[in-house]
Amino acid sequence: MPAPVLRRFPVACPAPLGYTLAMRILCIDGHFFLRAFRELGHEVLGIGPSCLMDVPVDRVLSLKDLHDILNARGFAPDAVLWADTCKPPLVAGLETLPWPTLAYSIDQYLNPWHQSYSAGFDAVFVAQKDYLPMFEAEHPRPAVWLPLFCDPFVLRGVPPGLEPGGRDIPVAFVGTPDPGANPARKPFLDAFERLAPLTRVCGDYAPVFTRSRLALNQSAAGELNFRVFEAMCCGVAVLTEDIGNGLGELFTPGEDLLVYPRGDAPAAAGIALAALAGDKLEEIARSGREKALRRHTVEARAKTILAWAARLAAQGAPARRLRDIAAVRARMANAYAILALDEQLPLTPEHRRFYLELAAAVRGG
C-alpha cells in the first residue's frame, strides 16, 4: 500500500505543527466521527457494522479483505481510527498498517481486552479517565483521556425545547430499561419512581429531553457515559451519579448539573423533588448546555483526533510501531485470547475459533 500522504489544505482544525492538513481517514467499527471529519474538510471511508458506514460489514475481515476494499475504492489512508462499539473488532491486522493508527476506547469497563488490543495502535484515546493508568502501563505508546461528547446534529428537525420552567415532563429517563450489563438499572428506576415522577422512554432521546425539566442518568459501572453530554445538549438539567472518571473536572455539581450518590434512589428522588420545587433548574440547564456545546461536541473531539493524527505522522509513529511489532503482537495476542475465551460475549463457535487462531498466528509472528 502507498505510504501516507499529508496534504496542506485550509480547514477548521489547527494541527499542532503550525499548519492544517486535509487527510484521508479510514474509520473502522464506530461511525461517530464520519460526519464531523467530513465537515472539517477531510475525506473519509467508514467500514463497520452500522448502516451509516460506507462499507457496512457483519463479519470479521482479514487484513487481505481490508486491502481489497481500499484498493477497490482507490482509497489510500493518511490515518486510521478504530472506534469502540462495545463489540469485538471487525478487522484483523490493524497493527501492521503503515499509516498512523489511533484507537478510541469507550466502554473499557465492559471490555478488558481493550487494554491489550490498544497496543496495536500509535495512540489510544480513553473515554473513562479512571482507566487511563491501565492503558498507560500496557504499552509505551501515548494514552490520552478523551471524554465522550454530544452531537448537536441530532437536534436538527426536533422542535425547539422550552425553558425548563415551561416543560411538560418533570423527570425523564431515556434508555434501555433492563440492559443485561446493568442489572441494577431497573430496581433503581422502580425505586425512584415510587418517590418522584418519572417518564421512562426507549429510543430517541432528543424529543423527550427537549420537553423535560430534569434528565435522570444511571450508569452500568460508574462510567461517565454519553447520556450526560447528550442531555446537556438538549438544554435539560442533568441529574446523574456522583462518580469519578473526570466528571468533576468537566462539570461543576450544583452549577452545570446535579449529582446523587451512586445507586441511592431515595437520595436521587429527594434531590429531584427539591430541584423541581426550586428556582435554579433553568440556570443549571443553561450552564450545562453552554459548557457542553463549547467544549464537548463531536466536532471538538474530532479536532483533537485529527491533531494527534498529524502529530503521529510527523513523528514517524508507524515506523516505530512496526519496528516493535513483536512486542505489539504479543499484547494483541492476549486481546484476541480474551475475546475467544470470554463466555459473556455473544459469539458463535466459529467466531471464537477465529480469535483463538488469530491469537496463535499473532504470537507466532
Rank of each mutant, 00 (worst) to 15 (best):
M1V: 14
P2N: 14
A12E: 10
A15D: 05
T20R: 14
M23I: 11
R24G: 02
R24N: 06
I25V: 15
C27A: 14
C27W: 14
D29Y: 13
H31K: 10
R35H: 11
R35Y: 07
H42L: 09
L45N: 07
G46E: 12
C51N: 09
N71I: 14
R73K: 12
T85I: 15
E95G: 02
D107Q: 13
N111E: 04
H114W: 15
Q115H: 13
S116Y: 14
E138R: 12
R141L: 01
L148H: 03
F153W: 15
R156G: 00
L162F: 11
P164V: 07
D190T: 04
A191N: 05
R194D: 04
R200W: 03
A206N: 10
R213E: 02
A220I: 08
G222H: 15
L224V: 08
C234W: 15
D242M: 09
I243P: 01
L247V: 09
L247H: 07
P253Y: 04
D256G: 04
V259Y: 09
V259F: 07
P266D: 00
D279Y: 04
H296P: 10
H296D: 00
A300Y: 12
R320K: 13
R321S: 00
R323E: 06
Q344E: 14
Y355R: 14
A361P: 00
G365R: 03
G365M: 04
